[in-house]
Nucleic acid binder design. Structure first.
Length: 353
DNA sequence: AATAATGGCAACCGCGAAAGC
DNA sequence: TGCTTTCGCGGTTGCCATTAT
């Protein structure tokens, strides 16, 4: 039954000391068999390596298009932003970084970025300031902020997609601006200035503010673009718009009006890595108080009276039925979340209540 | 100079999903 | 349809170089 085994990992695996096999592996891949048949390679080569090990070695070290130099501040910035958005999906994050592997990204995160954020007082898991986390724990039993933000975020997305055509148009406009900047325009200071400068910059008063939805759409676009094998076209620019940051960050002393210049100088707007209400539109709190009766009912409990909470499996199943690929992961995730909250409104309730 | 502690990196390993038989 | 292997992914481990004591 089933396929014959390609190898026995326990028997064939040799620890380390790859140097002697690297040349053989490269030759085998580039001249004889190409990429994708590692089991055959392991059998025929007789190098004593499991196909899986050889594949990993090739993917992480030997592939000719891999970058050998260290990560740039821009790359680090992007990794942090993507981690804040999608968590530790290293393979997806690595797809946005030409010449980097998921292992590289993961190692960078574990050894450097996590510590850097912690040193700045930002929790690397939640991307919130430690002070806010402590405050939230201090408010245990109440947790108004968490619930507010959760419901607000979801409602914002719902509104953008369903009931607020002007908002959707606005978001699409941002997305199109970003799209055209990334793909069509040559890299110029003007283009970066236009897109990355913050909303309060008087020189860009006509640019619509960049909202959360647009950010996620931009991420989606970058992911898709990378799947069309043009990561360089995207990466000549920052794939994610820089949101407004009114306070100076610990590592960047540049003013907000010179955001694009600071980026060009390898400086980073670290406060962008905070997942906070700053992402939400300024009038959001007002909108929260204007919940319609229907919306409040939806947020209040399941219509059938049950209090069932969907499992991770439900979520994954829902994702898979949409034919989710990495290219539309973020979009599918948002869609699923949206749907999940529609079907299981009890989720929007604070779990600590 | 010797040893311990630390950091960075590469490789290993287990799990779950997909695919083949 | 069920069993088995393959593959991709992410967490963990171990080695080596550097720094501190």
């Amino acid at each position: 039954m089933g396929r014959p085994p390609c190898c026995n990992d326990k028997v064939h695996n040799r620890k380390c000391n790859w140097t002697e096999d690297d040349a053989n592996t490269s030759t085998f891949v580039s001249i004889k068999h190409g990429i994708g048949n590692w089991a055959t390679m392991s059998k025929k080569s007789g190098y004593g390596r499991c196909g899986r090990s050889q594949k990993q070695r090739w993917t992480n070290r030997l592939k000719p298009d891999l970058k050998q130099d260290s990560f740039t501040p821009q790359e680090e910035e992007l990794i942090i932003k993507l981690h804040a958005t999608i968590g530790s999906r290293w393979s997806i994050i690595a797809q946005q970084l030409a010449g980097r592997t998921d292992n590289d990204v993961k190692n960078l995160w574990n050894t450097k970025l996590k510590k850097k954020l912690s040193a700045m007082g930002i929790d690397p898991v939640t991307h919130k300031p430690f002070s806010q986390i402590l405050t939230d724990y201090g408010n245990i039993g109440g947790f108004p902020k968490a619930r507010t933000r959760f419901v607000s975020l979801n409602r914002e997305l719902k509104g953008a997609f369903m009931s607020r055509p002007e908002q959707l148009q606005h978001s699409l406009q941002n997305f199109q601006n970003f799209n055209s900047l990334c793909v069509k325009l040559p890299k110029t200071e003007a283009s970066e200035e236009c897109f990355f400068s913050n909303n309060q910059d008087s020189s860009n008063i006509n640019q619509p503010p960049v909202d959360l939805l647009s950010e996620l759409q931009a991420i989606k676009f970058v992911t898709e673009a990378s799947n069309y094998n043009s990561p360089k076209a995207v990466f000549s620019h920052h794939p994610i718009p820089i949101t407004d940051c009114s306070t100076s960050s610990p590592l960047s002393s540049s003013s907000s009006s010179s955001a694009s210049h600071s980026l060009a100088e390898n400086q980073v707007n670290w406060c962008d890595y905070l997942l906070d209400d700053a992402f939400l539109p300024s009038n959001f709190k007002d909108q929260e108080d204007e919940l319609t009766v229907e919306e409040k009912l939806v947020c209040g409990g399941a219509q059938d009276g049950s209090n069932n909470v969907p499992s991770t499996k439900d979520f994954e199943t829902s994702l898979s039925t949409r034919g989710t690929s990495s290219s539309s992961f973020v979009e599918a995730m948002l869609e699923c979340e949206n749907e999940m909250f529609m079907n299981f409104p009890c989720l929007s309730e604070d779990p600590f209540y």
